[in-house]
Amino acid sequence: MSGNDVVEKVDANTLNSKNISLPMSRVKLIMKSSPDVSSINQDALFLTTKATELFVQHLAQCSFKKGSGREKKTLAYSDLANVAEEMETFQFLTDILPKKILARDYLRSLEERGEDGDD
């Protein structure tokens, strides 16, 4: 019985019983990076992990549905940027899911506004 085998077995067992796929240890790392957070109860960690999974599903589904009436075959980045702007529930994502514009259009709009490049 090697150490690795035991660890793999443990992970599989643990995942099945909890019915979540995301690793709680990683979620915990992210939570800890938030200032002012001292400690996190195990149930709270589980709930946050599960909620994140539900969130991923919800975001993917909403982004996909937002497309035009025609048959959609691909979920693209623009779908996500659109849903972040259009749905109130995803407004907190606008900072990290900005819409993209062509570089030349952006530079032109800067010139029109008379600003030197923002940084």
């Binding site: 979620v27 992210i30 939570m31 990076s33 938030s34 002012d36 957070v37 709270a44 946050t48 909620a51 994140t52 969130f55 991923v56 975001l59 993917a60 982004s63 996909f64 959609k72 075959k73 691909t74 979920l75 693209a76 980045y77 779908d79 996500l80 940027a81 907190f92 994502l93 990290i96 899911l97």
Partner: peptide
Amino acid sequence: VNVSKEARRAISQAASVFVLYATSCA
């Protein structure tokens, strides 16, 4: 349905931000 690599990366980042936001709120 296909999911572009960029979309996948974006959703992953959104999920991390969700954790941060939920944590600060909680």
